[in-house]
């Protein structure tokens, strides 16, 4: 188990020194613009080493006590925050997942579909209205013929 981890560790620290031939794909970086200062380089190399040293002091030599550190409130909070991956999961949950699920849930039945239902209701209303005229009684039918004649002649006169 240890061997591959060791290889990875070394690579992680010193891998930057290996030259990757990407000039053919990406344009060569402009000179001077993206040069990182030597100070930055030093800090970047120093930080992981500092981490190794700290963890040695905590877990290797036990010079520093984990329990004592954890009794501090600030440290505990910081631990929880880091342990939760800088709170990114929570952030995503709040920013994306919950709103998206909410958005999905509010319109499960697809409001667009109501448009077609509206048409069905409209035509059924038309049907109900007209169906009442089919009363079956002869006097009303005669009236409709006579009334229709008058209506048509009037319309013909008006138009």
């Amino acid at each position: 188990m240890a061997a591959p981890l060791l290889v990875l560790m070394v690579l992680a620290l010193a891998g930057g020194l290996i030259h990757v031939p990407t000039e053919s794909v990406f344009a060569a970086p402009g000179h001077g613009e993206h040069q990182v200062s030597t100070l930055m380089h030093s800090i970047m190399i120093a930080v992981p080493l500092l981490g190794i040293a700290l963890s040695y002091l905590f877990y290797g030599s036990r010079t520093l006590s984990v329990e004592r550190l954890m009794s501090n409130n600030v440290a505990r909070g910081l631990h929880r925050f880091w342990f939760a991956g800088w709170g990114f999961d929570g952030l995503y949950r709040r920013l994306f997942i919950t709103p998206y699920l909410w958005l999905a849930a509010i319109n499960k039945r697809d409001v667009v579909d109501t448009a077609s239902e509206f048409l069905v209701i409209l035509s059924e209303a038309g049907n109900a209205m007209l169906a009442r005229s089919q009363s079956g009684s002869l006097r009303w039918y005669i009236l409709s013929v006579v009334g229709g004649t008058v209506l048509l002649i009037t319309l013909g006169g008006v138009l």
């Binding site: 059924e124 038309g126 169906a131 089919q134 048509l152 319309l155 138009l159």
Partner: peptide, 24 residues
């Protein structure tokens, strides 16, 4: 013209009423 307008109205009314009445 007047006759054909009246006839057009009758045609429209017949199409809509006939179909609506048959609906159910």
């Amino acid at each position: 013209v007047a006759v054909s307008t009246v006839v057009a109205l009758v045609a429209m009314a017949s199409i809509l009423a006939g179909n609506l009445l048959a609906l159910r």
